[in-house]
Design a protein around this nucleic acid. Sequence first.
DNA 1: ACAAAAGTGTTAACTTTACACCCATGT
DNA 2: ACATGGGTGTAAAGTTAACACTTTTGT
Lengths: 213, 213
Amino acid sequence: MGIEVLGSIFTIQDGTFQILLMKNTKEPYKGYWILPCEVIKDDKTVEESIEKIVSEKFGFNDLKYDQCHVFSDLDRVPGKRMVGISLMSIVDEVTVMTKKIDTEYEIEWFPIDNLPKIGYDHIRVIEKSIEVLKEKVVQSKMLQQIFPCDFTLPEIQKVYEQLLSKNLDRRNFRKKFISLDLIEETGDKAPVSTGRPAKLYRFKEDVDNVLLF
Amino acid sequence: MGIEVLGSIFTIQDGTFQILLMKNTKEPYKGYWILPCEVIKDDKTVEESIEKIVSEKFGFNDLKYDQCHVFSDLDRVPGKRMVGISLMSIVDEVTVMTKKIDTEYEIEWFPIDNLPKIGYDHIRVIEKSIEVLKEKVVQSKMLQQIFPCDFTLPEIQKVYEQLLSKNLDRRNFRKKFISLDLIEETGDKAPVSTGRPAKLYRFKEDVDNVLLF
DNA sequence: ACAAAAGTGTTAACTTTACACCCATGT
DNA sequence: ACATGGGTGTAAAGTTAACACTTTTGT
């Protein structure tokens, strides 16, 4: 019996959640997209294993992981008994953009509502991770992971609108968010494509983890 | 490398959360109190394994389990690599009282704020389960597990007061709770020790899982 | 000057809090 | 009749929701 870790790595691009997948090069499910995963060894914890495998396959280091779920169906991996432990993490957009991912693997970001053909039982794992993502993202701590550096309020509002699947009033959103006392203006303005440029904010240091919404 | 399941079984007694532990009869940690646990076999999922072991050691069947956490520190069990998957469940008071537990093991309920000497790393496992318990019990679904049959509002209020570690106003608590539209009066009154007997309520059928507090 | 997106303030509705007295039962 | 705990209403404070116009930028 083996134990494997599976990593769901999310980011935000243009206000849309994306998940990072790799193309499977081995049978079974060759050519399908899968999560980075690996059987854990005797000398690593679950957290150390996921850090290693994500680093190796995707090039992201020092992410913070949260456990999502344990999958232990007898036949979830064809031909052997494999218990899967899934973890998730979020990478901010800037890191995604600036970090040139140097890997031998074919990897790609997919919007979570438009996934490609997924191998093994990874679609179930992904769905569970998305559930957990939605629960966690109403916490300021998670939001800080998504926006570690400067952000605008319209950006952050889009995240919530996607997750809550409804539109929010801009004025009320600003009032509520600012009243939480988590953020401060940087004084700068966001580069603009069209329209008035938005003010940039950053998270204050040492903010407590509070529930939004 | 092995995988074990660990079960944290909670109940409420007199408005206080209790956890069911068994006395360990083997070295190491002989005589210490531990969670029911067992290495999982090839022919069972995590959920099936916990059901079996809790049934066997504690005599409770058909509980609903939630996954809590995976513990994978290399040295968490002396002498072997053992990954621990912890699950929790809640048993209602009536089942606890009426079901005569027939087991060869020495088992006992302990209030969660007054635990005995705990073996292995189970104290960490228990602490994590209590965290999860506190998160889950603000959901009506979990409350329904605690009070599957008739209950009084003062009873349920005590549960919240314990979990939130503060006193709540009786009038406001009633108003809020009743306004959730989850419960209905049975028409009966609770047997009384002293003072006015409380009205009995029950959960309506098919209530959605909503967040309280 | 116009199009595009961001910023701002006020009022009404609703929710939450604070608070004190009466009621039903057992002794 | 009294001690014990349960049940009830109202007003103030706070929060959320609804709503429209002005500002800043690029073209």
